[in-house]
Amino acid sequence: MANTEMFIRDLADKHGRRRESLMPILQEVIDARRYVDDEVMVNIAKELDLSAAEVYGTASFYSFIETEEVGHYVIRICKTIVCDMKGKDAIIEAIENTLKIKLGQTTPDKKFTFKTTNCLGWCHKGPAMLINDDVYSELTPEKAIEIIESYMHK
């Protein structure tokens, strides 16, 4: 698609075409589209004069750079020990029931993807989760449902 080609060219104009421009470009694609698909990676490879394998190898290393299709809102709930002790399982269950999907899945309307992640750095206020870049801490099942519902209406 010409659209993607132009999008990546603009990002390369902005961040440069050196190897060290790769992460900022990938990160900005994530901000705009939530994941990088093959077409994006091939175009980045062309712009930066790298092999597509190099781009894929780098992108797929990072858990916040999705290389498979995800929803518009990526929910990442912390599963590390203190959030676990503070009841992250109940939060997961509440969110699964609200979105009617399981952990790791995307809603049919492609609005939400639900995943776990490692320590978010909110142990003193766990359980905690991220929705894209926004943090929600001191969750209860009720509070989590309320937050998810507010996103459903966005």
Binding site: S21, Q27, I30, T58, Y62, F64, I65, N118
Partner: peptide
């Protein structure tokens, strides 16, 4: 981009270099 190991200084540098 969500990699714990990048707190290790040489991994951090590799990440900044686009690897």
């Amino acid at each position: 981009s969500g990699a714990y190991v990048c707190g290790e200084e040489t991994a951090l540098i590799d990440s900044m270099e686009g690897r």
